[in-house]
């Protein structure tokens, strides 16, 4: 390796981040970013929101494997995924209001990652009033499959849009929290928060 080559390697560095930010904003404006994502701070830790022009596609906890989620979105929805804080303003304000104790109506959602059965199950959870819980069996009945409590549990566990689609309002028949993709601490925090703001 010659010295001149070394000196060329050391020439410019940095400076690309501003251009990348401007690219992301333009990609969202033009609609060529089919999926945009960004982190949002929240009382239950940083969340990553993934949105499409149709609405919120997925919400990930910081404990989730974001790479795996991105790969699955690339395969199932589109690989044209871009990090763009400008695209998730609506989700950010929905979460702010929710955690401030003023839960807004359901935001626009993109159901591309949700199966038809899962859609019925999650619609049933969205019908559970704030501050209340239901059992897996009850939700299975509400979704039209009273015998499918176990499948209901799996459908809830794979909920791509937790918090917004409130799978955390489903508990075991003995009242225990049972399980949550984001961990039981988060489930408890969400349920305590909802009990507090519903009175």
């Amino acid at each position: 390796m010659s010295k001149v080559a070394d000196r060329i390697r050391n020439l410019p560095s940095g400076g690309h981040t501003a251009a990348v930010d401007r690219f992301a904003r333009r990609a969202v404006e033009r609609g060529s970013a089919r999926v945009a994502f960004s982190a949002v701070e929240s009382p239950i830790g940083d969340l990553t929101a993934l949105v499409t022009p149709r609405g919120l596609l997925a919400l990930a906890f910081e404990t989730d494997d974001l790479d795996r989620i991105m790969e699955s979105v690339a395969t199932k929805v589109s690989p044209c995924i871009v990090r763009a804080p400008s695209a998730i303003g609506q989700v950010r304000s929905w979460l702010d209001s929710y955690f401030d104790g003023r839960p807004p109506p359901m935001p626009g959602l993109d159901h591309s990652l949700i199966t038809p059965f899962q859609e019925r199950v999650l619609a049933a959870t969205a019908a559970i009033p704030l501050g209340e819980v239901r059992t897996y069996g009850q939700v299975a009945s509400l979704a039209g499959n009273p015998k499918a409590a176990r499948a209901t549990g799996r459908a809830l566990g794979a909920n791509p849009i937790p918090v917004v689609l409130p799978c955390h309002r489903v508990v075991a028949s003995d009242g225990r929290l049972h399980g949550y993709a984001g961990g039981l601490d988060r489930k408890r925090l969400l349920l305590d928060h909802e009990r507090a703001i519903s009175v």
């Binding site: 020439l11 410019p12 560095s13 940095g14 400076g15 690309h16 251009a19 990348v20 690219f23 970013a33 994502f37 991105m70 790969e71 979105v73 690339a74 690989p79 044209c80 995924i81 871009v82 990090r83």
Partner: peptide
Amino acid sequence: PPFQTLVDEHARSLYR
């Protein structure tokens, strides 16, 4: 791969 992966890996050297 997600397009953002390419941006993260190559934007700096493309800019250079």
